[in-house]
Amino acid sequence: MIVLRDLRKSFGPVVAVSGLSLRVEPGEVFGLLGPNGAGKTTTLSMLVGLITPDAGTAEIEGLGSCSRPLVRASLGVAPQALALYDQLSARENLHFFGRLYGLTGTRLRQRVETVLGLVGLSDRGGDRAGTYSGGMKRRLNLAAALVHDPPVLLLDEPTAGVDPQSRASIIDLVRALRAEGRTIIYTTHYMEEAQKVCDRVGIIDRGALLDVGRVDELIARHGGSSVVAVKRGDVEELIETHDPTRTVADVLRASPDVESIRIERPDLETVFLSMTGRRLRD
């Protein structure tokens, strides 16, 4: 569906994206997981034709490069930087963005109400975007990407700077959109989100894609062993193992004086740490 081939982009001395290749299948949610400055936004910008790559290509299979306006009609983009008119109401914002995609009349009005409902802003739709909280703006920013009902969604950090409630509702919405069969690229630096919503995840750092796969595959490949922490009195013993259940059973059988026992399974954070020697969020 979406194919990136050896994309490269530098800003002066800064290499933002260095030879990134990627294939996103139709109907999947693909997560681009990486810390700030990894090159996620630059990659998406090249995909939508906003930035011309120094080298490489980015295209929608069967349609071509998004530098062609017509191809962009099938994309819904929710930029990382909120892109809304504060002086316009949520409805007016969505109405305007819908017009840009050629929607008019009843169909436009219906779509505006539908997406307002999807992001839970129906009752505040008449208020100016400038009066919204961070979470509400984020949701409106997402709604603006959906108004023309595009089959492909590019969501750049759609939960940045929102309250836990908005975050949960955005994640639910992305799952619902996936269930409708849309193809989604979802960038984030929150590994929990990637684990929750993404079918496959690409780990990106310093402009390069380190590995791509299902979450369990990535953990199996790079997560290393689980750790069982056993506490006796003031002493905590850490046991590395590939089969934590078995290890716990063994520990309990051997010594009955255990105060507490804890299993630390590897997650994407561990994966990132083992691949880069750094943590996702500093």
């Binding site: 034709g49 306006p69 962009r72 994309l75 983009v77 930087a81 892109a83 008119y85 995609y101 603006a144």
Partner: peptide, 10 residues
């Protein structure tokens, strides 16, 4: 950032 939305429209 709104210009970005205009440029990603068709």
């Amino acid at each position: 950032g709104t210009l970005l939305r205009l440029t990603t429209a068709p």
